[in-house]
């Protein structure tokens, strides 16, 4: 077995175990209002962090990719106009792709 396969299977096992742990932990943990509020806010914090990490970093550096940021900006405009989810995604990707095609960014 190669190192890559070990990494792949370890990642898969670890990720699955974490998902199952969450579903299995006793529900009274959520009985505390502060814990419940925390669980509500966790996706907001982590997804916002993922947006920032995926849009604004490359490896270990802060990176400004104009096309990517323009795509994200287009998504914000689409969201403000209450566009449905699919349209938001298409607008974002198309904006980045067109800017790159035009050589603008």
């Amino acid at each position: 077995m190669t190192a890559a396969w070990i990494a792949v299977l370890a990642t898969a096992a670890g990720c699955y175990a974490l998902k199952l742990t969450g579903l299995t932990v006793p529900q009274r943990v959520l009985g505390n209002p502060r814990v419940r509020r925390f669980a509500e806010l966790v996706p907001v914090a982590l997804l916002a962090a993922l947006v920032a990490a995926q849009a604004g970093t490359s490896g270990h550096a802060i990176s400004v990719d104009p096309a990517r940021l323009a795509g994200l900006g287009a998504a914000v405009i689409a969201l403000l106009l209450r566009a449905p989810f699919l349209l938001v995604i298409v607008v974002a990707a198309a904006t980045a792709a067109l800017l790159r095609l035009a050589g603008v960014a």
């Binding site: 998902k19 579903l23 669980a39 509500e40 966790v42």
Partner: peptide, 10 residues
């Protein structure tokens, strides 16, 4: 984070 989601979804 999926563990925290699982906690929320259970």
């Amino acid at each position: 984070r999926n563990a925290l989601y699982g906690l929320r979804l259970a």
